[in-house]
Computed example of a mutant assay.
Amino acid sequence: MALFISGGEIFVIMLIVVMVFGADKIPEIARGLGKGMRQLKDATNEIKHEIQKSAEDNGLDTDIAGDVQKEINKVKEDIEDMSGPIKRQF
């Protein structure tokens, strides 16, 4: 499920926020949301770091994403090598 919000919907949401909280409270609310998002990002990064450190301490391979990306690139190159002569004919 994707979340797509159009410009009109954003305008209606902002109008409701102004009506409920008042224009003078919006900067304070925005600062609080920004601070909360930053704390969440920092906590997420800390958890990732701890998981990676624990995996490395136990001898587990933590570069799975890098290995997958290498394989994807290899398949892309193989497809381009095979499709090259076909593209040139048209």
Rank of each mutant, 00 (worst) to 15 (best):
35 K>H: 06
31 R>W: 01
11 F>K: 15
24 D>Q: 13
86 I>L: 15
36 G>S: 02
31 R>N: 08
83 S>A: 12
38 R>M: 15
39 Q>R: 13
26 I>Q: 07
50 E>M: 04
65 A>M: 14
40 L>I: 07
70 K>R: 13
64 I>E: 11
28 E>Y: 12
9 E>K: 14
65 A>S: 08
1 M>Q: 10
27 P>F: 06
88 R>F: 05
5 I>T: 11
83 S>E: 08
13 I>E: 01
46 E>L: 07
45 N>L: 09
6 S>Q: 13
13 I>Y: 06
28 E>K: 09
10 I>E: 08
40 L>R: 13
46 E>W: 01
32 G>R: 12
84 G>K: 13
84 G>C: 05
71 E>M: 08
1 M>W: 09
34 G>I: 01
3 L>N: 11
38 R>A: 11
35 K>P: 00
80 E>N: 14
38 R>Q: 11
78 D>A: 15
25 K>L: 03
77 E>M: 14
11 F>W: 02
41 K>E: 08
30 A>G: 01
11 F>I: 11
34 G>K: 05
44 T>P: 00
25 K>V: 01
22 G>E: 04
44 T>N: 14
64 I>C: 07
86 I>Q: 04
25 K>G: 00
74 K>L: 06
39 Q>K: 14
60 L>I: 07
82 M>W: 06
87 K>E: 11
53 K>W: 02
9 E>G: 14
56 E>V: 13
